[in-house]
Design a protein around this nucleic acid. Sequence first.
DNA 1: CTTCCTGCCGTTTTT
DNA 2: CGGCAGGAAG
Length: 708
Amino acid sequence: MDKIYRFSSNRQIALNSAEGKASTLPIFVCFSCNTKTRFVNWQGYKTGNGGIKLNLVECSALPPHLRDLNPSQLEAVRHYTGPMLVFAGAGSGKTRVLTRRVASLVIDRKVSPSRIMAVTFTNKAASEMRERLEKLLGKRRAEQLWISTFHSACLRILRAHYKELKYRSNFVIYDQDDSISLIRRILKDMGASDATKRTARLCLGAIERAKNDNIDVDSFSYNPLFYNFSIDLRDVYKLYQKQLFEANAMDFGDLLMKTVRLFSENPSILEAYQRRFLFISVDEFQDTNRVQYIFLKLLSGKTQNLFVVGDDDQSIYGFRGADVAHIKKFKEDYPSAHIVMLEQNYRSTQNILDVANSIIKVGKKGNVKTLWTEREGGDPIFTYVAEDEEEEASFVADKINALVGEGRYKYGDFAVFYRVNAQSRAIEEAMLNEGIPYRIYGGVRFYDRKEIKDIIAYLRLIVNENDDHAFLRVVNTPPRGVGSITVGRLIEEGKKCGSLFHCARKAERSAGLKAFVSLIEELREFSRDAELEAIVRTVIEKSGYDAMLNSSKDEQSQSRLENLQELVFVAMSYRDVGKEAIQAFLDNVTLISAQDRHSSEGGDSSKGHVSLMTLHVAKGLEFPVVFLTGFENGLLPHIRSIEEGNFEEERRLCYVGVTRAKDILFLTRAETRGLFSSGFFREISPFALSIPDDKLEDLSGDFKGYAA
DNA sequence: CTTCCTGCCGTTTTT
DNA sequence: CGGCAGGAAG
């Protein structure tokens, strides 16, 4: 077995006798000088005093795809087989390690790229990784790799095996909005006293949690005292699954749960995938939930070649069922796993790291990772207290313009983070005022807009007439004389004849309904072999959506029309024709993450744009200059999180934010904020209190002034 | 059946 | 503040 030792000028690793067992084997020693790593092959043997004496055997440079790795990263990459856990701090090059390992498998190990799966946290991370690998492996080989999120990977598998699950082809995916209105209908049906959106969301939350834990209808149980309403949550879950199935639809949780179920109920299918995927790697492993872990365990069952990379300090998706305990579980389930720690941070200055460490260290017992960097010193962390959120935003905008004015940075180097999406509005306005180009990631998403969702509902109805939710959404949008009474009657009858659309076809009474049915059928006929762009354009026109918006005096109509134009533009990039095109489009629309979507843009973008995003979206990214806004108690630990006992997760969220910064970090807070009740006086975030004062430079003079 | 108005609620984070 | 749901009028 090869063993690699780090041997750099400023830090020398001790070669003790325990490791010296490898003395008759070749030992690789790496000299690290900035980014180029020399790869030197030594032969070592034990000396009398327990140390190792090294003899130079041969010298060679590393292969190109490993050349810019640092010694500890190299160690992680070059252990080829078996389970492996890379326990890596912020900015230690986790994703780089993962990418290079995939490249190394293909190049050094001659593994066929079609037999490697790499799971990333977001679709954006997946496409970035694919881009890198295209450069290292060439386009043809990179295309064969399975690089995707858990959800996309499962969707791909399910699309190939929908029959085993008794689904029909062209099943659709329901997003949270779809699910909530479905549950509302179920609640009303069951005669629940309270069928509001709020209750529906509560029910969906419970169901989602169950699915994250791979608990299906039969084994589902809950605490009825917690949900103090009349109906039985188990019945809701049961009906929900039944209606999803009848609508030929799945929700997000189903994608994973049904894949796991497919595997456990059909050993031959599982075996085929086990044989196919010789190597599986997972990024951001700390945010893996139970059903995802089961998926990984099943898939890697044969080869055990599971390579996971994660940082327990950056676990921030607990609300989605993510559990750091899976890192521990991994060590137990794979006792032979190699474990590599990456503690060097290649991103931030020492000052930024000190602040990050001071935040994360509090309340942690033992086993603390200590990150270090060669970027000593650096700028202090700047702090600022604003009167309100608007002043905070204009402070940010001023600083950005000042720094750009100095010529050191361009707009693309800046990021502004916040805890909740609602905070983006004030910042957005300040950016517009100062003429700063910006982009909001997440927030009110393009595909969440009403007009877009309506057109998408039409598309869904075209490929799948059983999609009752889509039916209800657009049957009277634009208005065609099908009101709540007609719809109510239809739902009553719908219980007998399957889907609502089926039922509507038979209903002769309502002229509006007849018009709707023939509209959809006409559109379906048209879509048979048309290009996606033409399909979308036709839907917008023939449905009367176009006319409705054009004749409306509402000011929003113009921007709605523009959004629809944008949708047509997006559709142009799809090559397929007919149903397949719509299918691919719909899959993308529901699965692509907030990071891929920019909802608004301002100014010209020749110098890039400032990125505005929530702390959650910021995970995995880095920026030279970072503004962390709303550093207030109740907001950055968010009050709801505190109430639910997730205080520590908020601390990690804060840590994630701070460690995104390469050079300069600003922490800002406002004394009042109109966000909740206005005029409410806000005190500083408790996370600020552990930061040593000598690392801070306070631009307002009282950043910590109001601390309790 | 649609539209408009009023009042109330709620206001984390996301694949 | 803003969005949405439900009710009354047109």
